[in-house]
């Protein structure tokens, strides 16, 4: 299943790019599974996605929790807790 992933703020700086197209393995169906899968990419990714820091997620512009299901062609975004206003 193909999805687009976006990264923002300190997460974007850590991974060093802002967007990528991913073709997910069949068993990656939730935000939790996607985080765990991304954490396998190496130390930087593991530090971000191993659960020690809060990483918020959105699917198609809606804030979601980690149990949310991912579908083909979704736009998934990962970012730190927001600090506007």
């Amino acid at each position: 299943m193909k999805i687009t992933v976006l990264y923002f703020a300190r997460i974007k700086e850590a991974v060093n790019y802002s967007t990528e197209e991913l073709d997910l393995p069949n068993d990656i169906l939730t935000i939790t599974a996607l985080k765990n899968w991304l954490a396998l990419r190496g130390e930087v990714w593991a530090n971000l996605f191993n659960g020690k820091q809060v990483v918020r997620a959105a699917i198609n512009h809606n804030l979601v929790d980690d149990l949310a299901k991912i579908q083909a062609n979704d736009e998934v975004a990962f970012f730190p807790p927001v600090t506007g206003g």
């Binding site: 923002f8 703020a9 809060v54 970012f79 730190p80 600090t83 506007g84």
Partner: peptide, 20 residues
Amino acid sequence: TQAPFWKKEITPEGARWIDA
């Protein structure tokens, strides 16, 4: 708490992201 904005400030100590 819900709108996707993030603040980064520049101080004499360098740049830092503001924590929620």
